[in-house]
Deep mutational scan, measured.
Amino acid sequence: CHSECLGNCSQPDDPTKCVACRNFYLDGRCVETCPPPYYHFQDWRCVNFSFCQDLHHKCKNSRRQGCHQYVIHNNKCIPECPSGYTMNSSNLLCTPCLGPCPKVCHLLEGEKTIDSVTSAQELRGCTVINGSLIINIRGGNNLAAELEANLGLIEEISGYLKIRRSYALVSLSFFRKLRLIRGETLEIGNYSFYALDNQNLRQLWDWSKHNLTITQGKLFFHYNPKLCLSEIHKMEEVSGTKGRQERNDIALKTNGDQASCENELLKFSYIRTSFDKILLRWEPYWPPDFRDLLGFMLFYKEAPYQNVTEFDGQDACGSNSWTVVDIDPPLRSNDPKSQNHPGWLMRGLKPWTQYAIFVKTLVTFSDERRTYGAKSDIIYVQTDATNPSVPLDPISVSNSSSQIILKWKPPSDPNGNITHYLVFWERQAEDSELFELDYCLKGLKLPSRTWSPPFESEDSQKHNQSEYEDSAGECCSCPKTDSQILKELEESSFRKTFEDYLHNVVFVPRKT
């Protein structure tokens, strides 16, 4: 048989008469490798580009789960590009990614509803959504962080984005990388972005840091009482949809009607710091009717980097990364020049730590249904340095008659930039024990000054392991946590139920 035959053949030295091919099969003959313009397919066939392209389009058009959109890589027609490569849609070739590779997620039936953290986790790592997304989240724990972890990498949506009755959302900033909504599939009414009845939605994105392009379709905003109209108009300008909307697409009466839409800028007039305090004062603000001013709200939190936005980490279910302080308005003076500047002394802060701070007014709604208010920009203030805590785990070892090696770990709280350490030492008198000992005694162990690591005695271990207080009263049991108490109650309830079950099964009433 021919060298490319495997198993047997019907005619000697003829690659077209093989029972099976050793390498690849091409047009009725066995070959060692697939010549151009053919590609290896499933490690035994040679196919042309049209064959591989037909497989790709067949799966793409069917949208069946589990099928493969075949691509070409290293002269092979394979189910998908290997790690580190992405497909070129024009020629199906796998090309190296520039940075992290995109991950295209194809949605069944063309859309997916995100109504819980669990459903959001199914899209973790996706960068391109081939379909439409509907966000409908009523509640949950730590929602802002969970949504950002699972949806934060999405850069492109081919269909539309719909935010509907998501009472738990305060902001859409968890879509931190969303840059493009194509609108290839539109919501009824030709809408590519749809926001309806979101009672706590206050911000779409921080438009000073976020760009969003909507290729096709219109915007729809109705019944978002805490979303200011200025935020919607800003989205029109940034996304390129200005002029597409009709009169009733953006409701003037049901958007922002319960919001404090600040239209003035508060400026800080005085800032002073110490290692654990920050004193702030800002310019006074009074609405047209000074009785509408209820006070100020001061927001602050630790910020290692200057990239904080107002609604980071917030949701309507209680999660809030900001510390909020309510401040009463100052006494009002008739003389504008003698107006008191409101302020606040922030206490209990960490030394040498940068804080993000902003302040906003708290006002009631005027009778004319106009909203007044003022808010400052987010500023960054760093507390002063102070003395560091003591170095940890000092170790001293003498390696000769004239040297001592000293080692330690950095302090747990540096409280500033540590530039150097101060080492103090003092000579001590020799131990009298060394002169009084009889060095001729056998088995004498000389006193040693070398360091030995501390260890816990058996008594201390027994005390720590004991669940009861000892007789001397030195140790006591740790208080039980809520989960331990709940577990004990469940076990007790189970024992009672099981005992009742045994009584009912074992003891049967005697027939009379």
Rank of each mutant, 00 (worst) to 15 (best):
K103Y: 04
V104C: 11
L108Y: 14
L108V: 10
E109Q: 06
D115I: 07
S116I: 01
S119A: 04
S119W: 04
L123E: 01
R124Q: 04
C126T: 02
C126H: 01
C126N: 00
R138N: 07
R138H: 03
G139R: 12
G139V: 03
G140A: 08
A144D: 13
A149C: 11
A149W: 10
I154Y: 01
I154R: 00
K162C: 08
S166M: 04
R179Y: 13
R179V: 11
L180D: 12
L180W: 15
L186V: 05
E187W: 12
N190E: 08
F193L: 10
Q199G: 06
N200M: 13
D206T: 07
W207H: 13
K209M: 05
T213W: 07
I214R: 08
T215K: 10
Q216L: 13
Q216R: 06
G217A: 07
F220K: 14
Y223C: 15
N224P: 00
L227P: 00
L227H: 00
C228P: 02
E237W: 15
V238K: 12
V238L: 11
S239T: 11
K242V: 14
N248G: 04
A251Q: 15
K253P: 12
T254W: 13
D257G: 11
Q258S: 09
N263R: 09
L265P: 07
L266W: 01
L266S: 02
R272V: 15
S274H: 15
S274I: 08
K277S: 04
W282L: 07
E283R: 14
E283H: 07
E283F: 14
R291V: 01
L293G: 06
L294H: 10
L294C: 08
G295S: 11
K301Y: 03
A303K: 00
Y305E: 10
Y305N: 13
Q306P: 07
T309R: 11
D312N: 04
D312Y: 11
D315P: 08
A316G: 04
S319F: 07
N320P: 08
T323F: 12
T323V: 15
I327D: 01
N334G: 13
S338M: 12
G343L: 07
R347N: 09
R347E: 08
L349A: 13
L349E: 00
K350G: 14
Q354P: 09
I357V: 11
F358T: 12
T361M: 05
D367R: 05
D367V: 02
R369P: 06
G373L: 05
G373I: 04
I378R: 05
I379T: 10
V381S: 05
T383M: 03
V397A: 02
N399H: 12
N399Y: 05
S402A: 05
S402Y: 05
Q403A: 15
I404N: 02
K409I: 01
